[in-house]
């Protein structure tokens, strides 16, 4: 990365476009409030003062899909909720990512029955799966940081 190349003392740095864009995207990802069930409480704990998610740029949890980048699906998705989930995902502007938080969002969890969608990746494409029932706030932060790493590794051909 050519950040170290400073042209004289004019204070100009050079870098690759995709590095800058990815850095900007990963450091200020706003999550959409999509807490459904028990994992939502751990997500709130992650946002609260002890395990602060604002350190990672997720200062605000936007309830509106138009203003958010990442949808953290926290909780079990029932058959009645699945169309709502898809509609909200469609309303989010690109670039958008999805973190499936918890076992129920990743694979259906404890509940393998008529009422629960077995994994939210049957409805929306998922980028990061976080395991746990519910995952500890540290696990969710690990998932968020994995997503940041994934975003930083994105290539220009993917989104240009």
């Amino acid at each position: 990365m050519g950040v170290e190349q400073k042209l004289g003392e004019m204070g100009i740095v050079t870098a690759r476009l995709e590095d800058l864009v990815n850095w900007g995207r990963s450091n200020a990802m706003w999550p959409m409030l999509f807490g459904l069930a028990c994992c939502a409480i751990e997500m709130m704990s992650t946002q609260a003062a002890h395990y602060d998610a604002s350190r990672f740029g997720m200062e605000l949890m936007r309830p509106s899909p138009r203003q958010s980048d990442v949808m953290i699906v926290a909780g079990r998705v029932s058959r009645k909720m699945a169309p709502v989930l898809r509609r909200l995902y469609d309303q989010m502007p690109a670039p958008k990512w999805v973190i499936a938080m918890g076992d129920c969002a990743s694979c259906g969890g404890v509940f393998n029955n008529y009422a629960i969608v077995q994994g939210v990746d049957e409805v929306v494409p998922v980028d990061v799966y976080v395991a746990g029932c519910p995952p500890r706030p540290e696990a969710l932060l690990d998932g968020i940081m994995s997503l940041h790493e994934k975003v930083r590794g994105e290539k220009l051909q993917d989104w240009a």
Partner: peptide
């Protein structure tokens, strides 16, 4: 309601 119906009783 019903957006979180999990079928716990049946399960």
């Amino acid at each position: 309601i019903g957006f979180l119906h999990t079928g716990i009783e049946k399960n």
